Simulated assay, not measured.
Amino acid sequence: MLPAGVEAVPTPGHTVGSACYLYSSPHGRTYLFTGDTIWPARGSWTSATFEDDAKQSAYRSSLGLLATLRPDVVLSAISPDNTWAEISPDEWASATDTAKVRLA
């Protein structure tokens, strides 16, 4: 846990030391900052791909961990469409599953 209630969520497999950040606001909304770990693109969700099987396996596990979180808003860094999306728990579970498929 970081100051101001921000939780670092390690995301191994993406890059060395990679993390996403979860913030539960005092106004009842939860925000997940994913950077370029997972992002919305053209009406779907995507992730990076790697040639290295070990990296892909670790990345897939990281996406599995992210799927257990319940953000209300996901903010990313590289979306060609937009950099944030409001999302329901079911939509988030589907988004992480879709991103995992890209790693297969």
Rank of each mutant, 00 (worst) to 15 (best):
T49W: 13
T15C: 06
A4W: 12
D72K: 01
A77K: 11
L69P: 03
S76E: 08
P10Y: 09
D52S: 15
A99P: 03
Y23T: 02
A93T: 14
K100N: 03
L63G: 02
L65H: 12
L32T: 07
L75Q: 06
S47W: 06
W45P: 03
S62Q: 09
D52G: 04
Y31P: 00
H27W: 14
L22S: 03
P3K: 03
P89H: 07
Q56N: 13
A93P: 00
W45K: 04
T96A: 09
E91C: 03
T46S: 14
S79L: 01
T96H: 06
P26H: 07
T37P: 00
V6S: 02
D81N: 15
P26V: 09
E7G: 00
L2E: 09
A41P: 01
D52F: 11
S76C: 15
Y23R: 08
F33A: 09
F33Y: 15
D53Q: 11
I87K: 01
P3S: 03
A67H: 10
S62P: 08
R70G: 04
G5V: 10
I38P: 00
N82L: 11
S79A: 14
A48G: 11
P71A: 06
A104R: 14
A85K: 09
F33I: 03
W92N: 02
A95C: 05
G43S: 03
P40G: 05
A95E: 05
W39L: 01
T11G: 09
E91Y: 00
L103D: 04
E51N: 12
R42K: 12
L75M: 14
L66A: 07
A41C: 11
S18G: 05
W84T: 00
T34N: 10
P71N: 05
P89V: 06
A4D: 12
D53N: 10
V74N: 07
G17W: 10
P12H: 07
A48L: 13
D36G: 02
N82A: 15
T15F: 06
I78Q: 10
A41H: 11
S79P: 03
E91S: 15
T49C: 13
N82C: 13
R42Y: 12
S61H: 06
S25Q: 04
G17A: 08
A8G: 00
A54H: 09
V9P: 01
G43D: 02
S94F: 01
P80A: 12
G5F: 05
E91I: 00
K100W: 05
R70T: 15
A77M: 13
A4H: 13
A95K: 06
Y23M: 01
S76H: 12
G64T: 12
D97C: 05
E51G: 14
A93M: 03
I38N: 02
P71H: 06
T11K: 07
M1S: 12
R102G: 10
R42W: 04
L103I: 14
